[in-house]
């Protein structure tokens, strides 16, 4: 690990000033420390934000508000989260390991780096790590890579589970920067790789994630997260699906659907949602909607299976959501 200095500001203003001057925020450190040891990340200044009052979980009207420093395990175990937005709790429990969930913050989860093996392999081409060096994954071992939102410069998936749930639920993010505060849909945090895969998010220099806000909807309770992976627990998704349904008299009134493991960012499926509205809560409607999910998919040599696995996962997740009493 290369040398760095560690700063522990007591105010958000001081932290933001340090970050605007080039320092990197660190909270749980589960991504950053690992990548610093590999020298994939080489920050010279770190700002430990754990002393800032950015934790906690609260309910405001129909909204669930999650502090950026709340830990994954804390959010997953929270009674209000389980009661109001069970999709958030379930997607969190399906991610990482118990130890990592005790460490990782919600804000950091949004900003975690990709798990493409070539990203952390310093002698392999990776446009995300070293712009212009090529993408070793495109002709390499790419079974775990994306089929949606890829470019000829990067095919890595966004690894978060809970981000998939948050994007499905139209969650927003509040950030504070040198110019003040702003809020925006979390979906807009994630950039497509295009020809600049080294730019992963839309935060401005110095901006600090303050909290995540999840609006309640008539679909919030009838919601499930299904993660398909190579082992039953503690593994990244091959395909995952977050499905939420509002149902009246056996007919779907509203649907929210997003998928993970297949996209270069958490992937919302609005065409599928629209296709579900007005349909009976039955498998044929799920299959017709799921069929739309792979429009524009560009499979690679080793991940063709995802083109079949994605709609199947969506159908099963919709069935699971439909079965919620």
């Amino acid at each position: 690990m290369l040398p760095f200095t560690m700063e522990k500001p007591e105010s958000a203003e001081a932290a933001i000033a340090a970050a605007a001057g080039g320092a990197r925020y660190i909270a749980g450190g589960t991504t950053l420390v690992d990548l610093m040891r590999e020298e994939v990340e080489r920050p010279e200044r770190l700002v430990d934000i754990n002393a800032l009052p950015l934790g906690g979980i609260r309910v405001e009207g129909d909204d669930l508000v999650i502090g950026a420093l709340a830990r994954m395990s804390e959010v997953a175990a929270d009674r209000n989260v389980q009661r109001l937005q069970p999709l958030i709790a379930e997607s969190l429990i399906e991610g990482a390991s118990p130890q990592l969930r005790n460490m990782a913050s919600m804000g950091g989860n949004m900003l975690q780096r990709v798990r493409c093996p070539y990203f952390r392999m310093l002698d392999a081409g990776c446009n995300k790590r070293t712009p212009g060096s090529g993408c070793a994954a495109i002709d390499g071992l790419n079974a775990g890579h994306a089929i949606l939102g890829t470019s000829e410069h990067c095919v890595a998936t966004h690894p978060s589970d809970v981000a998939v749930a948050l994007v499905a639920l139209d969650a927003t993010m509040r950030v504070r920067g040198p110019e003040g505060e702003r809020s925006f849909p979390i979906e807009e945090l994630f950039r497509l790789p295009g020809d600049t895969p080294h730019l992963e998010h839309t935060l401005l220099p110095g901006e600090l994630i303050v909290e995540l806000r999840v609006p309640g909807g008539p679909y919030s309770r009838r919601a499930r997260y299904l993660k398909v992976r190579d082992r039953a627990s503690y593994e990244f998704a091959l395909v995952s699906a977050a499905a939420a349904l509002s149902v009246e008299g056996g007919v779907i009134r509203e649907a929210r659907l997003a998928v993970g493991g297949v996209g270069t960012r958490p992937w919302r499926l609005r065409d599928c949602e629209a296709a579900l509205v007005g349909k009976r809560l039955e498998r044929p409607a799920f299959e017709a909607a799921a069929h739309l999910a792979t429009q524009g998919a560009r499979p690679l040599q080793h991940n063709h299976f995802k083109v079949e696995l994605l709609p199947r996962t969506i159908v099963r997740a919709l069935e699971m959501a439909g079965e919620v009493a």
Partner: peptide, 12 residues
Amino acid sequence: KRIVSCLTLACM
């Protein structure tokens, strides 16, 4: 709380 100590900087 159980954590993995390898990814936890002592100075924090």
